[in-house]
Design a protein around this nucleic acid. Structure first.
Lengths: 407, 407
DNA sequence: AACTTTCTTTCTTCAGTGAAGCAAGTTATT
DNA sequence: AATAACTTGCTTCACTGAAGAAAGAAAGTT
């Protein structure tokens, strides 16, 4: 278990430095007095800590604000350019990389295609090479990079830095962190792609107003992540949130995972295919006939007024609603945030899903789980990957062996 | 959100006192040197803190152990009798109360029946009256009681001290904590009964070796609790773990909760009734005919060789296995602990359930979720209730406004 | 007598605190 | 305008009290 540090002067100092810098980082330009009242620390303490933070360039003074009847406050701001982070997302046939500042703002990003047949080793080499390219193009030295975050779809053991299994990439037991870490000598963090997105949601999205929520991703598969008190819960070996493989139908449709009746078979891209085989009988004239069914293609058909497309989404919405009920009844989250490519067609399936989901166990009780849609853009995946690396720098240093900028 | 305290001398002292007392409490008789090496605190610090703890009677010296070649160590032990706690479990038609020491060992317990038609107010008065009786019988003054914990089945908002809904008792929105607290002027903690049992499991059961697990209770209904890093996760308003009402069959059997296809309809006492209506056609000679079906009665029938009883448990096991799969795939716990009255018949349904549950999403990956059976006795419910009250006394005081013995 | 282990005492270190005071503005009064 | 009085922001410094280190006392064993 993560063990608490014992109390000594080093702990006091680490904690207070952490509080001060995180206050400045999150609440933005602040005067020393503001920080003092917000944190509860004495003014003299703030003065001393700010002095140090200024010397290490983590914080800088950014002129004086207007007076409110006395001496004008000197505003302090977090130096986002103190260092950089790199985010990587591994997709089916290409990589997305981004260089960000410490606020996770993307400075420059690159996309590099690869062949689906490329081996893990080749792809890892491609990642390393592209990071080098990204850095040299932006004239950033590796010493200025505080960490590298990588997002991969599939089952990821982030503690061990291992991709246990990724059906999308055809990977099994790939040690992803180590080779990258060996080259750059910088901390490398890997996680599941939905988890990475969720970090972005925590820091930049709905997490700004919610401390407990779950993210459900709808796309090729169904993913989930669990946020408790702003922290992600990963399960014993990173598999929490294999929600797509919870069973909603005893002895139902066979899933590629070996089970029967998985939610993923009823409310993802795969579900569109599955459901359509039956539906084509009733809708022989559907323009979807002989087309590859994806959220995009079915959405286009629905927009064009194709009845079968509309029915298809409606069915998907019903099953998704059941999935949401199960999530609500298991976790009782205050909020569910929906993400993923499937959301482009939300108008066609979400109303049905939400109507169904509202009839959950708690709906008698005035307690309602809000269902929200992520407002982050498509770059949230790679931004989240960068946040994997950034976040660890600013954790409150109360546990043993937490690395930190504030040493 | 729970906010971290700022670093100052008071924090240091609180933290270290907490570390020392919890080390003594958990690891048992220890010398000062032992504590020093275990905690990492300096010997002189330990001497000072132990001095204080001795003065406040929280710790006492219990003779000297054998020498290992030098001065004999003076063993220190936690004073379990420093104070008392009271645990209460509200059952369908009776109360169970227990007076415990600070190690949650039961000193004396009482059972008091009531009428199912009694109003919440009457039952609360009965609780208050019985606590008084329990204390006076044991000649304990209320000042010596550090807290009172109450376990109730149903949806409990423990932060607000509210029983939101308890179908078993027919309660809705009952403010349970406040009236008790008003009388005794001592902290009162309430929680769901499965959660209370889980606290006992954390402190006295499998939690001694596991930091992350879930408990699944099988009985009249199906309950669940989630333990992450030795802490219970309760959800936004205490409803996490309404696992019995996750849907395993789209449009399946109607549940009293208003949904269809809830797990509870397939793997609890209710399921036995439901399933039997069909099965009686195939087994017209079953000795279960015209009997009230409970785990007890069906178990007796199975022991007597009744085929239908055996089939009934086998079906229940299959569905339970599906429930366990859903729990495993959602939470990826290292361990599942099974509890509840249903476990008396485990030999007839568990093998089927575990066989099914093993075929979960992770079973390719050498990662296995252990399924264990709780070894705690029937008094774990009320013991857990007492632990609700005891635990808050020994929390590490790193968050703002955590009450503590060590002020 | 020499060594070990446990525990205590004394002294040192250093981070936060709070009062006093300085800095730099605004507001009211002349 | 000029001045005095007030406000707000920040800094300095003596003080407090926590852990820590070192020396040594206590109580054993070899």
């Amino acid at each position: 278990m993560t063990k608490l540090r014992i109390g000594n002067k080093a702990l006091i100092k680490d904690m207070n430095r952490s509080v001060v810098i995180n206050t400045i980082r999150k609440v933005g330009p602040l005067s020393r007095t503001d920080i003092s009242t917000q944190t509860g620390l004495g003014l003299s303490t703030i003065t001393k800590i700010v002095e140090e933070l200024k010397n290490s360039r983590l914080v800088f003074e950014t002129g004086a604000a207007n007076s409110t009847g006395g001496r004008r406050p000197i505003l302090l701001e977090f130096n986002k350019q103190y260092a950089y982070a790199v985010g990587v997302k591994i997709m089916k046939d290409h990589l997305v990389l981004a260089l960000t500042d410490l606020d996770a703002t993307i400075i420059h990003s690159l996309e590099v295609p690869f062949h689906p047949t490329d081996s893990p080793t080749e792809i890892i080499q491609l990642i390393i090479h592209t990071i080098e390219q990204l850095l040299s193009k932006q004239q950033v030295k590796i010493d200025q990079v505080e960490g590298i975050g990588v997002a991969v779809s599939g089952l990821v053991d982030s503690k061990k830095g291992l991709v246990v299994r990724s059906p999308l990439l055809g990977w099994e037991d790939v040690a992803l962190s180590k080779p990258i870490q060996d080259v750059f000598q910088k901390p490398v963090f890997i996680d599941n792609d939905v988890n990475a997105y969720t970090y972005a949601e925590v820091e930049k999205g709905h997490g700004l107003h919610q401390n407990n929520f779950i993210c459900v991703s709808i796309g090729d598969g169904i993913g989930m992540s669990i946020v408790i008190d702003r922290k992600l819960y990963s399960g014993e070996f990173g598999g929490a949130g294999e929600f797509g493989h919870t069973i909603i139908q005893v002895d139902g449709r066979s899933c590629h995972c070996g089970q029967e009746g998985c939610l993923e078979m009823y409310a993802s891209t795969i579900a569109l295919e599955q459901e359509s085989t039956v539906l084509f009988r009733s809708y022989p004239n559907s323009i979807l006939l002989n087309k590859k069914l994806t959220f995009d293609s079915v959405y286009d058909a629905a927009l064009a007024g194709d009845e079968m497309a509309i029915v298809l989404f409606d069915k998907l919405g019903y099953y998704l609603g059941i999935g949401l009920i199960n999530a609500i009844n298991s976790f009782n989250p205050g909020t569910i945030v929906l993400i993923g490519e499937g959301m482009i067609a939300q108008e066609y399936f979400l109303p049905t899903a939400i109507t169904k989901a509202k009839k959950n166990f708690f709906y008698h009780d005035r307690y309602e789980t809000k269902v929200l849609i992520s407002r982050l853009g498509n770059d949230a995946w790679v931004k989240g990957a960068a946040i994997l690396a950034i976040n660890q720098l600013f954790q409150p240093p109360i546990y043993e062996s937490t690395p930190s900028l504030l040493s």
